[in-house]
Nucleic acid binder design. Structure first.
Length: 859
DNA sequence: GCCAACCCAATTTTT
DNA sequence: TTGGGTTGGC
């Protein structure tokens, strides 16, 4: 492309090192790394010049193409590693890409400073030019929590009712604006009016002003500021134009408008140097811009976007499928390459998924295929159940069965749910069964209260102007500094335009406060001062411990007798431990907001339970898809709020779910589900009707569970026998009937007939049943989140590696009857009985439970 | 200033 | 049913 030569002058060949090696490799025969690619993949790798869109269906080797492409560019010596911009959405994806490129090109990845998430690259750019947007380069990055607290303050400062106008709502609105790349002056009048009696715009502006004063950014700003920077400073933009010779984008279907604008500024360059880049200003103009506007013609640098419109499932958080649908209009002359050859799933799974997704209208259209069709492959199963308890039980049994018959690893199985409340039922059931599971998702490590508190302490020490952090912990642990005192400090600080901590320091010397709070405040301030001084001399991990210790924060949790406290202390330890790899407290803090997530515990063999959203990008031998019922999936809210496009996004979610399975997919729906504590009858999801019968087997309801050995091989073999009967099986009919009227003929599966006859929609199971297990307890054991699970790390690991129900080794237990134990979910208790690795424990608060040994700790 | 009794709402989630 | 957040009493 033309302007490429104009700006890119540093020829890689000029220097030694990697590039030299790459140069040397040039001209040899087909490099190894290309050999294993299919023709389409290879085309995508080799089309290095100009705009390229790779439509990569599920399981078609998307990441491979991306990484090989980078390797190819380096290998041909087309660019230095530092001249390639490669963006992903998540840190995980960035990490994986880095690893995989590393495998291909060796140490050269280390020289790829511009491989990262949109946000981390945004930070990098911003730190270099912070002063141009009014920040200092050591700005703080606020997360959602900080953001909300800040907004709340602003709302209150405006004398608005913060209940009528919740900060969270406004944070979401603002998020939406920032996702669209809108500054306060850009937001539509209607939006501005929608909040706080028309004060939306003012609030947004006030919020931004406040962030500037705090020298802080929120996540949205990490995109917004660079966009503003590029627009206002064409020279800076030109510098990046010169730098980036190749741009690669992963998961393009998930980009929002701001990310699109950002990319476009970087990718699209004026053909003539006429400072027109400054004019690429107004987002609206840009949105509709073709290859040229306002008399300036643009050329696109070598931009390669990879994505799959059928897997766009983040519309609700601002992703614009339209970006990918419009690619060839945005970037004229784009090469579009489709990857449709699937290497993951069976023909049945692909058939089912393709047929389903074909019901969507807004799509570019691709059809996955595989060469590896095998008559032995099981069809996609549809199972009916009575209620969600039965669903959990039956899936649990199916899992055990696969394990027993096929030596199936638990690690290769996953249960993918639509909404996280569905997880609990499975957790309860699996705890009872003694089946290892791991929950993926949920609150992240750095979002945990104790971690955030600790970080707030560190922030105060490193950045004494960090008012939000100070605010957070000034009275944590409780020191007797209540609202009244804090408000005085705030007023004082505002009046003199000094940070809170400075204000507190000064006030501690005046008569404005009562003696008690004054003394406390003085103590707090001097603590921070002291810690700040130690920053230079004491090793940061030690200082961190010292801070947590001396502030009384650790003690606070030690004195807390709730079941979560030990886990929290463990998390604090882990936090300090994770600081090791950073040089100092400030450098740790710099990384923490963006990059910190903890690796899950992969050693244990366990079934994964997660939402469909978090399953994107993963694959499993066997996938269970429970809860295919109208209202839940598709979710009622998507339907209500999103209309047809909402439904289409739900359908894509179903598509994502199906395509996670490599060999087996087992779908479930039930007739009764408890929602918000009430039993409601439900009808099967419309998506079930959208599956092609040829690839689906509807299971006989009564045989897929029942507790006596389950279904035999004949069920699989005799699949054709059921073909005609599809959708007319008892389970199906029963479910339909349950919807229409009320049939009590269904086997309840739990021996109870706890609901009476005909009209009530509520079915209340009074007593009995197994679901008691988890009731009344808030935090299920979230195995796999590093830190929570570490609470059970003390015990022998191997125990968790097998299905405990089968491994009855009476003497193997670390416990004896009468031992006191602690369980993350149930708290403290006494061992009443031991059966292999399963313990029966009388919990002090939760009553008697059967639990896995691996889940409890000796006290 | 702190704690316990109410009230309300209730997908999906990354950075 | 659950959890978070607010209110009102001590």
């Amino acid at each position: 492309m033309t302007d490429f030569d104009e700006s890119g002058r540093a020829a890689p060949a000029a220097t030694g090192g990697i590039a030299a090696r790459a140069m040397a490799a040039r001209g040899t025969r087909t490099p190894d790394y290309l050999a294993g690619l299919n023709p389409e993949q290879r085309a995508a790798v080799e089309a290095t010049e100009g705009p390229v869109l790779v439509l990569a269906g599920a399981g078609t080797g998307k990441t491979r193409v991306l990484t090989t492409r980078i390797a190819h560019i380096l290998n041909l010596g087309l660019a230095f590693p530092s001249q390639i911009l490669a963006v992903t959405f998540t840190n995980k994806a960035a990490r994986e890409m880095k690893n995989r490129v590393g495998l291909l090109v060796g140490g050269a990845v280390e020289g790829m400073p511009w491989l990262g998430t949109f946000h981390s690259i945004g930070v990098k750019i911003l730190r270099r030019h912070a002063e141009l947007v009014g920040l200092k380069s050591n700005f703080t990055i606020l997360d959602t929590d900080d953001q909300i607290r800040l907004i709340k303050q602003l709302i209150q400062a405006e004398n608005l009712d913060d209940k009528r106008w919740p900060a969270r709502t406004f944070a979401n609105m603002m998020d939406g604006w920032k996702n669209k790349g809108l500054t306060p002056k850009d937001i539509p009048e209607g939006d501005a009016r929608a909040f706080a009696n028309g004060k939306g715009r003012e609030l947004y502006a006030a919020y931004q002003a406040r962030l500037m004063a705090l020298n802080a950014c929120d996540f949205g700003d990490l995109l917004m500021h660079p966009i503003a920077l590029f627009r206002a400073h064409p020279d800076v933009l030109a510098e990046y134009h010169r730098r980036f010779k190749y741009i690669l984008v992963d998961e393009y279907q998930d980009t929002n408008v701001a990310q699109y604008l950002w990319l476009r500024l970087l990718a699209q360059r004026p053909k003539q140097r006429d400072d027109a880049s400054g004019k690429i200003g107004q987002s609206q103009a840009l949105m509709s811009a073709k290859g040229s506007d306002a008399g300036v013609s643009y050329a696109t640098v070598n931009l390669c976007c990879v994505g799959d419109d059928d897997q766009s499932i983040y519309g609700w958080r601002g992703a614009e499928v339209d970006n990918i649908l419009r690619f060839d209009k945005d970037f004229p002359g784009a090469t579009v390459i489709r990857l449709e050859r699937n290497y993951r799933s069976t023909a049945h799974i692909l058939g089912a998924a393709s047929h389903l997704i074909a019901h969507n209208e807004d799509r570019l259209g691709k059809t996955l295929f595989t060469d590896a069709a095998n008559p032995e492959d099981p069809k996609v199963e549809v199972n009916a159940g009575w209620d969600s308890e039965e669903e959990a039980r039956a899936i649990g049994e199916a899992i055990e069965d696969l394990q027993r018959r096929e030596n199936h690893n638990l690690n290769d199985m996953a249960i993918l749910v639509r909404a996280s409340f569905q997880m609990r039922e499975f957790e309860d059931r699996f705890v009872t069964m003694g089946l290892n599971y791991r929950v993926i998702g949920g609150p992240r490590f750095y979002e945990r209260m104790e971690v955030r508190d600790a970080l707030a302490y560190f922030r105060c020490v490193c950045q004494p102007a960090d008012d939000l952090a100070f605010d957070r912990i000034v009275n944590t642990p409780k020191r007797g500094l209540g609202d009244a005192t804090i408000r005085l400090v705030h007023d004082y600080a505002r009046a003199r335009a000094v940070p809170l901590i400075a204000a507190a320091g000064e006030m501690a010397e005046t008569e404005e406060l009562k003696p008690k709070p004054r003394a406390t405040l003085r103590r707090v301030v001097s603590d921070f001062r002291r810690w700040s001084e130690l920053l230079a001399t004491v090793k940061h991990t030690e200082l961190a411990e010292q801070i947590l210790e001396e502030s009384g924060y650790t003690e606070m949790w030690q004195n807390d007798r709730s079941a979560e406290a030990p886990g929290r202390l463990e998390n604090l330890k882990e936090l300090v431990r994770s600081m090791e790899q950073y040089e100092s407290l400030p450098s740790f803090l710099e990384h923490v907001a963006l990059v910190m997530d903890t690796e899950q515990n992969a050693e244990m063999d366990a079934v994964s339970i997660m939402t469909l959203h978090s399953a994107k990008g993963l694959e499993f031998e066997t996938v269970f898809l429970p809860g295919w019922e109208e209202g839940l999936f598709p979710h009622q809210r998507s339907l209500d709020e999103g209309g047809r496009s909402g439904l289409e996004e739900e359908r894509r979610l179903a598509y994502v779910g199906l395509t996670r399975g490599k060999r087996r997919v087992k779908i479930w729906f039930v007739s009764n589900r408890r929602i918000h504590g009430l039993w409601q009858s439900t009808i099967p999801s419309r998506f079930l009707d959208e599956l092609p019968e040829a690839h689906v087997e509807v299971m006989e309801a009564n045989t897929s569970y029942g507790g006596y050995g389950g279904y035999g091989a004949s069920r699989w073999d005799g699949a054709s026998a059921f073909k005609e009967a599809a959708y007319t099986t008892p389970g199906w009919r029963r479910a339909q009937a349950a919807n229409a009227g009320f049939t009590n003929t269904g086997k309840s599966g739990r021996g109870g007939d706890g609901w009476s006859g005909g009209r009530s929609r509520e079915i209340n199971y009074g007593e009995g049943g197994t679901a008691r297990a988890g009731r009344g307890h808030n935090q299920p054991p979230r195995q796999g989140f590093g830190l929570y699970s570490s609470a059970s790390k003390g015990g022998p690991r191997e125990i968790e590696g097998e299905l405990v129900a089968k491994s009855v080794i009476p003497d193997a237990s670390r416990f004896a009857e009468g031992d006191r134990v602690f369980h993350l979910k149930f708290g403290n208790g006494t061992v009443a009985n031991i059966e292999g690795n399963k313990l029966t424990v009388d919990f002090d608060k939760a009553g008697q439970k059967r639990v896995l040994e691996g889940f409890v700790e000796p006290v």
